[in-house]
Amino acid sequence: MPTEEGILAFHRRCEEFYPADAVDASIDEQRKWYDALCAEFDAPSPVGLTREDALVGGHIPIRHCRPQTVSTRTRIYYIHGGGFVVGSLNSHDAICAELADFAQAELVSVDYRLAPEHVWPAAFDDCYAVLQALLSDGRPVVVAGDSGGGNLTAGIILKARAEGLAGIVGQVLIYPGLGGNLVSGSYVDMAEAPGLTTADVSYYRDILKAPAENPFAAPLAETDLSGLPPSYITGAFFDPLRDDARIYAARLAAAGVNVTFREEPQMIHAWLRARHMSEGAREGFRRLAEAVAVLVGTR
């Protein structure tokens, strides 16, 4: 268990809204609890930031966040986490707003289809369609995502490379789930970690029904990571997904990709939400925001 009081207080507060056994509840109940949790950790919007909702392809909801000062043509494309089961444009809106404001860049987030109503590749296809739309006007894009969104980020970037889609100038993976082996490494060492257990990860995989051998669904299955964009990867020590981040970062570096890896020693899964109550999360978010700013060219 971590010892930092701020992250422990964050975890206790989370369990008041989203119980440890949430995956045993109905999908509707899980989403209701998650929405309440996200609202609890909402934060004031940066001064001057505006939002505009739109549709890609007539059916995929997106949200444009534009800070008061925009200093680059490069956009951030953010894909939210939530185990592919929960989450929305609103669930990560405050996080997206703060990233956009810090980086002085427009940010676009996506409301992809969720499981179990829509199993793989529905979410993947939605996220890739938005990426194609964003790149169609010639403006560069940095793709970022946390947890399940980190999985989707890495997957669509692999597909973009396979299809020769140009214009992606960075990827940011935040405690990503990349298809690691559930019976080894951190999946064993952190099987009962606060905030996310290995049993939870198994549940989300079962409900998504993604092919484990397909690198677009499980990026760790990809054997050739050369030619991928500059990357920033951050993991949490007390997280069963920890080794997915470690291993992917090491493989990117071995393939010659410019990659920065940072592991938060006191953090648990979903620590982004603790950025205003935990010193470790605050520092981790600052480093993340700085990395995004470097990738979009404003730092």
Rank of each mutant, 00 (worst) to 15 (best):
V257N: 04
F261M: 11
Q266A: 08
T153L: 07
V183R: 15
A100C: 12
L114W: 06
L89K: 02
R246F: 13
A94P: 09
L196N: 01
A289G: 02
D24L: 14
F238W: 14
S226Y: 03
G180W: 03
A291I: 08
G280W: 06
F216C: 09
A25P: 09
A160N: 03
G82P: 00
R12P: 00
I268P: 00
W271F: 15
R73L: 13
I156P: 11
P67T: 02
D111L: 04
T3C: 09
L165S: 08
F261P: 07
D101Y: 09
R246G: 12
V142Y: 02
E290C: 11
R299S: 13
G82I: 08
V294Q: 15
D28Q: 13
D239I: 10
K209V: 13
I76M: 14
D200L: 05
L196F: 05
L165W: 02
L225M: 08
M267T: 09
H80M: 06
V142R: 01
G6P: 11
P230T: 06
T223V: 12
F261E: 07
C65S: 15
R299L: 13
D53P: 01
G87L: 10
D239T: 10
L173E: 01
P116D: 12
D189Y: 10
V130E: 01
G6D: 07
K159M: 01
D53L: 04
R13C: 03
I174W: 09
Y232G: 00
A97K: 11
V143D: 00
A105Q: 03
T72L: 05
E213M: 04
A218M: 07
S147I: 08
G149N: 11
V56G: 03
S136R: 14
D137A: 14
T50S: 14
M1K: 13
R13D: 05
V292D: 00
F238R: 09
I60A: 03
S91A: 15
V259T: 08
R63E: 13
E290V: 15
G179V: 00
P46K: 04
T223P: 02
Q68D: 15
C38D: 05
G83M: 11
P116F: 11
E98F: 12
P61R: 04
E192Y: 10
D101G: 07
F216H: 12
R287V: 10
T74W: 01
G170W: 01
F84Y: 12
E290F: 12
V257Q: 02
V201P: 00
I233W: 05
E29G: 07
A9T: 13
A293I: 05
A255W: 05
V183I: 15
L241P: 01
T3M: 10
K209S: 10
V86N: 04
G235P: 03
A97V: 06
G83K: 10
Q171G: 03
Y232Q: 04
C127D: 02
P176E: 02
I174T: 02
A217M: 06
P19V: 07
R273T: 04
P61F: 10
D21V: 07
D137K: 10
I76W: 06
A94I: 06
A212K: 04
L228E: 02
P219Q: 00
Q132R: 15
A144C: 14
L134R: 11
P229G: 03
L228G: 02
F10A: 04
R262C: 09
C127K: 10
G82N: 03
R139F: 06
I207R: 14
A210P: 01
I207W: 12
G164I: 08
D189E: 15
P229V: 04
G235L: 08
A133F: 13
